[in-house]
Design a protein around this nucleic acid. Structure first.
Lengths: 213, 213
DNA sequence: ACCTGAACACCGTTCAAGT
DNA sequence: ACCTGAACACCGTTCAAGT
């Protein structure tokens, strides 16, 4: 048929379909041929809209980051803003866990990821944090949030009692961790987040600069 | 030639060669054919020693975890033990950053990873932490350490000044982050680690149980 | 401009055949 | 028991050919 009267593909359609495949079948299931089949098209057609498969993944990732609320920065005090942003960020990741391994390599050139970094860093500097500390706090938060989104801690332990019996004397109940997934993972996230914010707050008085205005 | 007089392959040799390829060329560069070529053998020969490529990766990952010192548990007080273990764990990851994306899916059935989880959890319980809290602390530490090992924060920002100029007003110096890689990443790790340990310590008096003896 | 078919250089894995 | 060659069903990407 060659070129159709109206384009059958669009970046939007490709991104949405790719996201669905990754969410339902996992990151490795996304191949250009599989994606093309779902879109009722041949694989090379995708290259009219994206230069590489990598670019498709970038676009999928950025669409997810674009959904993270940033309005708390410049509205709430920095510790509260950091807290509610962390929850929003983690929720966005949690909605698409299979994409996270791809996202954690940094913002790269993805606009939404850069906007997010800009908002966090800007809010901290505006609050009086010296640039060196603002950078460090941003990095610490990224480490913790990415790590917590990257995979459940609880689900990392196979639900097979026999595995732990003999060799791991303290893990006798680890096979039940997966039953308490959200309690464990959410509890650890809250514990870590509050500890980090408290840690930052205790540092603040010693390094804060009075805002210029 | 068919079967050689003495086996030319061994699990050990396969693991070492695979680790070298991953370290020098990245995780995607490891294919069974590439690995076989390095070992001067045909790809199917690997299947006499490992059932799948996944099993090879498991073995590579576990060898790395097996190098993490755990002797501080049961010797040092729990906050000091947690601190020095975190440094050892992170150092092991940092020596093989390309393997980390594969490791973060939890211990699974890898013996060294399970031994590590057993040591951390056991030390916390022995120190009087109720099981629920010991689990949470272990998970929080895994989130943070995995996140910090998974990829540099500093290197996530392309060293291209033009990228930030117009659209990201607070990131005007982000293009220089990569020059300060270790300062930024190590500083963020220290800040986060000390904050987390202080957070755990402030919780301790309220929940600790006297050891049985 | 946008889609297709054919092709290239790859994958992981199976399996019969060799010693 | 342990290695090989051939094969199967896949990959990402290029490119000339079609409209």
């Amino acid at each position: 048929m060659a070129r159709p009267a109206r384009p059958v593909l669009s970046r939007q359609r490709i991104i949405e379909t790719a996201t669905t495949i990754i969410d339902t079948e996992g990151l490795p299931a996304l191949s250009t041929r599989r994606l093309a089949r779902e879109l009722r098209v041949q694989a090379p057609s995708l290259y009219n809209h994206f230069a590489t498969k990598e670019e498709i993944l970038d676009a999928v990732g950025d669409a997810i980051i674009a959904g993270v609320d940033l309005s708390m920065f410049g509205r709430d005090a920095w510790p509260d803003a950091l807290r509610s942003w962390a929850h929003a960020y983690r929720a966005a990741y949690a909605a698409h866990p299979n994409v996270v391994p791809f996202l954690v390599h940094g913002p790269g050139r993805r606009p939404a990821a850069l906007r997010l970094a800009d908002a966090v860093y800007g809010a901290l500097v505006d609050a009086g944090w010296p640039p060196r500390y603002a950078t460090r706090i941003g990095a610490t938060m990224r480490f913790f949030i990415a790590g917590s989104a990257l995979g459940s801690f609880a689900l990392g332990f196979p639900a097979d009692p026999a595995l732990y019996d003999e060799n791991y004397p303290h893990l006798t109940d680890a096979h039940r961790l997966s039953e308490h997934r959200s309690e464990v993972d959410d509890g650890a996230f809250e514990l870590g987040l509050e500890s980090l914010i408290k840690g930052f707050e205790s540092l603040y008085p010693a390094v804060v600069k009075q805002p210029a205005d």
